[in-house]
Design a protein around this nucleic acid. Sequence first.
DNA 1: TCTTGCACCTCTAGTCACTAGAGGATGTAG
DNA 2: CTACATCCTCTAGTGACTAGAGGTGCAAGA
Lengths: 140, 140
Amino acid sequence: MKKITIGEAARKSGVKVPTIRYYEGIGLLREPSRSDGNQRSYEQSDLNRLTFIRHARELGFEVEAIRALLSLQDNPLQSCASADAIAKARLIEVEQRIRSLMALKAELEMMVEGCGHGRVDQCRVIEVLADHAQCTHHGH
Amino acid sequence: MKKITIGEAARKSGVKVPTIRYYEGIGLLREPSRSDGNQRSYEQSDLNRLTFIRHARELGFEVEAIRALLSLQDNPLQSCASADAIAKARLIEVEQRIRSLMALKAELEMMVEGCGHGRVDQCRVIEVLADHAQCTHHGH
DNA sequence: TCTTGCACCTCTAGTCACTAGAGGATGTAG
DNA sequence: CTACATCCTCTAGTGACTAGAGGTGCAAGA
């Protein structure tokens, strides 16, 4: 098998070079073999793992969740209930986050629409921030 | 005017005690006067400012944006165009974030629905993460 | 063969917005 | 006067990287 440098691994996986080293440091990625000159040498399986990690990070999974998902992937015969639970928990987080962002969006829109582009002392943006009572959304 | 301790300020503003000290350290909040025993003593105007900051943080404004908004609030005669611009920028960020979270939600739903609760090697959660090509949303 | 120049190495420190904890001083109620 | 909560300063830790210093490896052109 041909050797893959860290730079090549970065290009192919979409994970930056220092981030790959960081993942190795925290134990998400195994320590790869080294060249005579002490340079890291990766295999295809490492690229797959890096892609898995990148994708999971893009979906907002935390490193500890990814660590759990990876250990599941390493033991393909066991039940996938844990993986399902992790994904479900993340789904609930995402739904919650969307709801709260929608509320913020409404509030920001009111601020921006209310701004008469005059002086600060008549500005709705500043006013709403200064006086929480004016919020439409009181959940926060 | 009666003296307000940092703990009271925290209760009334909803900003935690160490966070108030932190805001003072980074210059968001003025250094308050001190009691004989060197304890911070706040006034109503400090509470207003803290509430402003808390509210802005809840709306997701970064500290630097809040610093700008506060300096606008301190000069109420100038044009509110900057405040408007800051709020608009934040609105665009929020809208973008909502769009991307909706895509993630769809992807997570597919993963969770596809999970047959069997073994990991048939688990759609793991499979989708491992093979990005299966994503419905290719933007990331 | 030499040299240029990029990619690689390790290590430390910085980012953001706090949060936690140590170790000690102050203030207040009983 | 004694508890005891609250306050003080200072340092270090969080998550997930990112930036930079200072040095080594390696492949290609002269």
